[in-house]
Amino acid sequence: MFKNYIKSFFLYELLLGMKVTFLNMFKKKTTLNYPHEKAPQSPRFRGLHALRRYPSGEERCIGCKLCEAVCPALAITIDTEERNDGTRRTTKYDIDLFKCIFCGFCEEACPVDAIVETRIYEYHFEERGENILSKGDLLKIGDKFEDQITIDQSDKAQRL
């Protein structure tokens, strides 16, 4: 009884709690100053999708629809057509980002490494409908980040 009285008089519990606080003041920080600082990413990071091109500028996608078939969330919709040169090309390649669960199966299924998931994870939508990435959008993303995608893809290939 007397012991408890002394403890509460000298704020013993408070000091005990503050001890953790004061000790952490001198430890190395674990948080990041986002958006000025960013966490490191694995080359296998699965962010926003992109469609790639060959160095000649020809799109890689041959419209085989394997990604559409493998997609567990049914987020991909593809229409194809035969182009004048006799190759099959997509006329429509839509990914619904609301449905997509970023599992990366599409990337794995692709026989020509056309659809990839990039490191981009910072994006937002302002209007309904913007969540659907069309073929043009995907190709633009691919063109913009091709250098990084090339590095990541070769890195992945080495780790197989």
Partner: peptide
Amino acid sequence: SHMKGRTWE
């Protein structure tokens, strides 16, 4: 129907 669709669809 050449190149217009895939069999599993």
